[in-house]
Write a protein that binds this DNA or RNA. Structure first.
Lengths: 189, 189
DNA sequence: GAAAACACTTGATTCAAATCAAGAAAGAAG
DNA sequence: CTTCTTTCTTGATTTGAATCAAGTGTTTTC
């Protein structure tokens, strides 16, 4: 957890007391592969930073699972919609690789954002980023063909192909594993 | 503009002075059919309420336009991502029907949200709503077939089919106008 | 370390939607 | 009102991805 706290210190320059309070509010959690971080209908009541590992966000349908997002180390994990509204989640989040997480409880976070303008600002920026991301993803699903989405993902996030089981990647692209396999054969030959 | 101001009065119960200030900050704008409300690369610098009419939000590609959202009377119109970040828009918004709009300038809105907690709260709720909407749309594009999306839209927003040219609806559903026409023949027969 | 379970690839076939191509209907413009 | 343009429908064909079906490779697990 050194890196996150180091960066917080660098950016926010909290006093030693504030820093100590912050450290106390953090819980370290370890997940094994396939452990759930958030289950459908649960309320996401924390802000969580991934120290190590990777996770996937997915929807559960009667017939199939649809993977909609990936999270890696040095980023936050969660369903922002669920978190902001503090309402039951419509998505699941589970570990792909073993994870080490830094968990801040929701009440603690709210206290920070309410009392510390810099945190409020940070929260706003995170929300904005997610918005832009959602808008882009929506556009790519509508305007690009599956094959184009594959090429874009390969270009922009090659590491996903290295660290995420291909069936999840296929689902994220909105295609079957067979089709993804054929793209790979065709473009990585 | 009666309805919006009436509701503001009802919900926020501003003083007569505040209400007068508010009314002064509002600009009434009329758009003809196909007029642009927001063009790509412009910055969306207002919060705008639709009194009358309808609009569409769309992406422009070299080959095709992709319609991604519709707006009707008694709701806000805009690209929230663009508004929040005050960065050049990646989308266009144009009138489908003639529109009457109530426009609040960005600086005025910021003043409101910064100085009036109820407005801050309202802004937060609007952001949350858009988030939930984006999450649902993303899910529907990934997990539902074009035909299912058509049926869902027909079920949930039948008015869209009455008031929006079908080629825009087709684009919104991610299908060609021909396919939409066949669905209609099949399901509305 | 062998067996079992799971993940990925490859091939054959099917299917749904795109494309191509006219027509019909509805709106806009003179 | 009539013409011209745009929008929508309907039909024939093509195409790209899904499905079905093995087979190969790779982890778990006992």
């Amino acid at each position: 957890m050194k890196r996150l706290l180091f960066n917080i210190q660098r950016v926010f320059q909290p006093s030693a007391d504030e820093m100590a309070a912050l450290e106390k509010a953090i819980q370290i959690v370890h997940l094994k592969k396939n452990d759930f971080f958030l289950k459908e209908n649960e309320i996401c009541s924390s802000v969580t930073f991934i120290e190590k590992g990777s996770m996937r966000l997915f929807y559960e349908s009667p017939d199939k699972e649809v993977c909609n997002d990936f999270f890696f180390e040095n980023s936050l994990v969660g369903s922002l919609a669920g978190f902001l509204t503090q309402s039951p989640s419509i998505v699941n989040i589970a570990a792909i690789e073993p994870c080490e997480l830094l968990v801040f409880d929701y009440p603690d976070v709210m206290k920070l954002t309410e009392n510390w303008p810099a945190w409020r600002k940070l929260a706003d920026i995170l929300v904005q980023e997610q918005f832009v991301r959602a808008e882009k993803r929506e556009a790519s699903l509508l305007r690009n063909s599956p094959e184009e989405r594959f090429k874009n993902l390969l270009e922009e996030h090659p590491k996903i192909f290295k660290r995420v089981p291909l069936r999840y990647v296929a689902s994220y692209l909105g295609i079957t594993p067979e089709t993804l396999s054929r793209y790979r054969a065709r473009f990585l030959a």
